[in-house]
């Protein structure tokens, strides 16, 4: 109670947001989750949960969702790391310009961006026309998992850059000078200093991109089509197409649990053991 007293002003300032979140987020989300427990207005029963959990179709979709989200996270990480590293060395004017370019996909609608990929990748799209012009056979580049991963990476890459940049920029320049002074090559400096000290940014960016990718709807439905469905797409199908709200609620709950579990494990692993000191 004394802690509350001491921080009363802070609590009061946070109150509007707390009310907002409770009314507009916690209650509706909780209601949707409860919907799965009371499928026909009676219950509670786990019958629908058992049904969905036993369905091989949902197994495939869940595993695909995890795989696509994971690949998107890894691809974003691999692409964003060099950019964030480079941003350390450029002047502040260039820095803001590059960050703006990186974040610019976030400024347009997901649908517009994804339709651009459709134009690029579809069977008679720009890339396949170009292949045809140089005598190559057309390739299937849309409605495959790769297309979804590329599309999602494009959309969420900016979050990764910004997360990485904040932690990489915080690293004291003198640490590099000290390492060089002790005989570390440029590569060793990055392996010994940049990599471990950027872990908080890696974790934050990865968690962010993973959550966004795993729950994405627009990009997988446009670039994956019916063949490459993901859990969020199935939620939409069940709720809107089949008007089966209880099953949509069960899938949403499953997606939520899946994401929470992955994020929890990733956080525990990344912050575990000796690396704890980096996160303090």
């Amino acid at each position: 109670m004394s802690a509350f007293r001491r921080h009363r002003a802070a609590w009061l300032l946070a109150l509007p947001l707390l009310v907002f979140l409770t009314v507009l987020f916690v209650i509706p989300v909780g209601q949707i989750m409860l919907l799965g427990l009371f499928p026909k207005g009676e219950g509670p029963t786990f019958a629908l949960f058992e049904e969905v959990l036993a369905d091989p179709f949902y197994h495939r979709v869940a595993i695909r969702t995890l795989r696509i989200a994971l690949l998107t996270t890894l691809l974003s990480l691999v692409l964003a790391y060099p950019v964030a590293l480079h941003l350390r060395n450029v002047g502040s004017r260039w820095q803001s310009a590059i960050v703006l370019i990186m974040v610019s996909p976030l400024l347009t609608s997901v649908v517009v961006r994804t339709l651009a990929w459709v134009v690029l990748l579809s069977n008679r799209g720009i890339l396949n026309q170009a292949f045809g012009a140089i005598g190559l056979p057309p390739m299937r580049m849309i409605y495959v998992e790769g297309a979804v991963v590329v599309g999602l990476t494009h959309v969420f890459f900016g979050y990764m850059v910004v997360s990485l940049m904040t932690s990489i920029r915080r690293i004291d320049e003198n640490l590099y000078a000290a390492a060089a002074n002790l005989g570390a090559s440029r590569l060793r400096q990055h392996l010994e200093i940049t990599l471990p000290l950027s872990l908080p940014g890696v974790l934050a960016g990865s968690v962010l991109v993973f959550i966004l990718a795993a729950s994405a709807y627009a990009t997988p439905s446009l670039l994956g089509g019916l063949r490459i469905s993901m859990l969020a797409v199935e939620v939409f199908n069940q709720a809107i197409t089949y008007f089966n709200w209880p099953e949509a609620a069960v899938i949403s709950t499953g997606l939520f649990v899946l994401i929470a579990a992955v994020v929890w494990i990733a956080t525990r692993v990344a912050e575990g053991g000796r690396r704890k000191v980096i996160f303090q």
């Binding site: 003198n174 640490l175 000078a177 002074n181 002790l182 010994e192 471990p196 000290l197 000191v277």
Partner: peptide, 29 residues
């Protein structure tokens, strides 16, 4: 280079590697 010429530096803020123990800091070179 500073390493080749055998000049070791102690920085103003010491620039100790924050993610390494004392032992690993000292072992670095």
């Amino acid at each position: 280079s500073s390493h080749q010429r055998g000049a070791a530096m102690v920085f103003q803020n010491y620039a100790l590697f924050p993610h390494m123990t004392v032992r690993r800091n000292v072992a670095f070179g």
